[in-house]
Amino acid sequence: MPPAGTDGPDTASGKPQKKPRSFWRELPILILVALMMSFLLQTFVGRVYLIPSESMEPTLHGCAGCTGDRIFVEKIGYRFGDPQPGDVVVFKGPDSWNAGWTSTRSDNTVLRGIQEVGALVGLVPPDENNLVKRVIATGGQTVECCDEQGRILVDGKPLDENYVVTDFPFTPGSQTCDTPLKSGRCFGPYTVPEGNLWVMGDNRSNSADSRYHVGDEYNGTVPVDNVVGKAVAIVLPPSRWGLIDSPDIQSN
Rank of each mutant, 00 (worst) to 15 (best):
C63K: 13
H61S: 15
Q115N: 10
L60P: 12
T67D: 15
P94W: 08
I51E: 01
V89Q: 05
E74P: 08
S103F: 08
S55V: 12
A64V: 11
N98Y: 12
P52R: 00
A34C: 09
F72T: 02
S106C: 03
I51A: 01
L27V: 02
I76K: 01
A99K: 07
W24S: 15
C66N: 05
R25G: 02
E26M: 09
D69G: 07
F23Y: 08
S55Q: 04
N108D: 05
Y49V: 00
L111W: 08
L41P: 02
I76M: 02
G93R: 13
S103R: 14
D82H: 08
I31M: 14
P52Q: 08
M36D: 04
V33Q: 15
V33T: 14
V33S: 03
L41Y: 08
F39R: 14
P85V: 11
M56E: 02
A99C: 00
V45E: 04
V45W: 09
D107I: 01
V73S: 01
G77S: 05
R79Q: 15
L41R: 12
F23A: 06
I31G: 06
K75Q: 10
T67W: 10
G86N: 11
T59I: 14
E116M: 01
V90H: 02
S22G: 03
Q115S: 13
M37N: 05
G81Q: 11
S38K: 10
F72P: 08
R25C: 03
V33I: 14
Q42I: 07
C66P: 02
R79Y: 14
G68I: 01
F72C: 09
T67P: 00
C63Y: 06
R79N: 10
P28Y: 11
I51F: 01
N108F: 09
V33R: 10
V110W: 14
V90K: 09
G62N: 05
V45A: 10
E116G: 06
S103V: 10
R25K: 05
P85S: 09
E26C: 03
E74A: 03
A64H: 09
G113R: 13
T43A: 15
I71Q: 06
D69E: 11
P58N: 06
V110I: 15
L50G: 03
L50K: 01
E74D: 11
V48M: 12
F23P: 09
S103M: 03
C66Y: 01
Y78E: 05
G93M: 15
L32C: 13
G62D: 05
S96C: 04
N98D: 11
W101I: 11
S22Y: 00
D87I: 11
V88E: 06
L32P: 03
G68W: 00
F23L: 07
G86K: 06
C66Q: 11
L111K: 05
R47W: 02
P28D: 08
Y78H: 04
G100L: 10
A34R: 02
Y49K: 02
G81H: 13
A34V: 12
G46D: 12
W97A: 04
M56S: 07
R70M: 13
R79F: 09
W97H: 07
M56I: 05
T104I: 02
